[in-house]
């Protein structure tokens, strides 16, 4: 009896401690080198390009609802519920106008909101954690050149227990690896960090975490219910047979080697993002993807 009582007390105390830990807002320290400040000259111009490579606009634009680019409001249906993207324009009240460089880096690379709240990983900070600080702040510099739009955040409709934001702190502890420090080649950096290709092309576990062992191996339940094809070890599609030139061409025009065309979210990715990249960057992406299929 005594032992049982001790055990129950132990469980309750541990549970309480976990709850307290989860509810404490996050405010991780971030270090921003002088050279990376968003106020430096040329950062906004650099950001105008990086923002394409990072694909921000595809989610932060309610295109179907005739919304304004970067003002958010786009619904993204996932197995956990519907998320609405927030406003990235520099409106002080409803956008990011009041954010410091530190706030922005914390949000993008660590998934910590302006009030220390946990951001949902539908915002791909699990990939963005590998973006270089200078690139992150170039994006911010570019966003701050946009016209501020008043667009309040729409409420997500997420099922319990995921509706409890603080839970994401535990999720991060379980599923987020420390940012890789290795110097990735350009193509890998574009695919894994900026382009966050794996967010759609890599399968997820029941907790919505990317299956690191199946990088880019396709996802049967992608965004808005799309089946996302495998880029590595493809069985049904013949992506592995595409040449470097064919992959690069697809990222530019949306036309596949068999003259079929991109559709759904990938058509948006090409239209909004990859077609605006330099041909060198498209080729770097293609070379990296090709390298994954050569064993």
């Amino acid at each position: 009896m005594r032992l049982l009582r001790l055990a129950i007390i132990g469980v309750l105390v541990t549970g309480a401690l976990v709850l307290v830990w989860l509810s404490v807002p996050s405010n991780s320290p971030v270090i921003i080198p002088e050279a990376s400040s968003s106020r430096n000259p040329g950062m906004a111009e650099r950001g105008a390009y990086v923002v394409r490579a990072a694909g921000c606009i595809s989610c932060h634009w309610d295109r179907k609802g005739a919304g304004i680019a970067f003002a958010g409001g786009r619904a993204l249906a996932t197995p956990f519920g519907v998320f609405y993207s927030p406003n990235l324009t520099p409106d002080v009240e409803t956008g990011i106008g009041g954010w410091s460089d530190e706030d922005f880096v914390r949000a993008v690379t660590l998934g910590e909101g302006i009030h220390g709240e946990q951001l949902y990983p539908v915002f791909p900070y699990t990939s963005y954690s590998a973006i270089r600080v200078t690139d992150v702040l170039a994006i911010k510099a570019y966003l701050f050149t946009l016209k501020p739009v008043k667009a309040p955040r729409l409420d997500n409709t997420i099922s319990f227990p995921f509706s409890w934001r603080a839970l994401m702190k535990g999720w991060k502890l379980l599923f987020v690896d420390s940012p890789p420090t290795a110097a990735w080649p350009r193509g890998e950096y574009l695919v894994r960090a900026l382009g966050h290709c794996g967010q759609c092309h890599t399968p997820r576990n029941v907790f919505g975490a990317l299956d690191g062992g199946a990088h880019l191996q396709g996802n049967r339940s992608g965004p808005d219910g799309w089946r996302v094809p495998a880029l590595v070890g493809a069985t049904k599609s013949n992506f592995a047979d595409w040449s470097v030139e064919e992959i690069a061409e697809y990222l530019k025009s949306g036309v596949k080697p068999d003259f079929d065309s991109a559709q759904g979210p990938m058509a948006e990715v090409i239209e909004d993002n990859t077609k605006h990249l330099t041909s060198e960057d498209r080729r770097a992406i293609a070379l990296y993807l090709k390298s994954l299929n050569q064993h």
């Binding site: 799309w226 089946r227 025009s253 949306g254 036309v255 003259f259 079929d260 065309s261 991109a262 559709q263 759904g264 058509a267």
Partner: peptide
Amino acid sequence: FGALGKSCKGCHDQFRGPEVP
């Protein structure tokens, strides 16, 4: 061929639905 690709895509975008599992 650039124009040809656009013509394939134009028709697919308007008249073809998503892939059926």
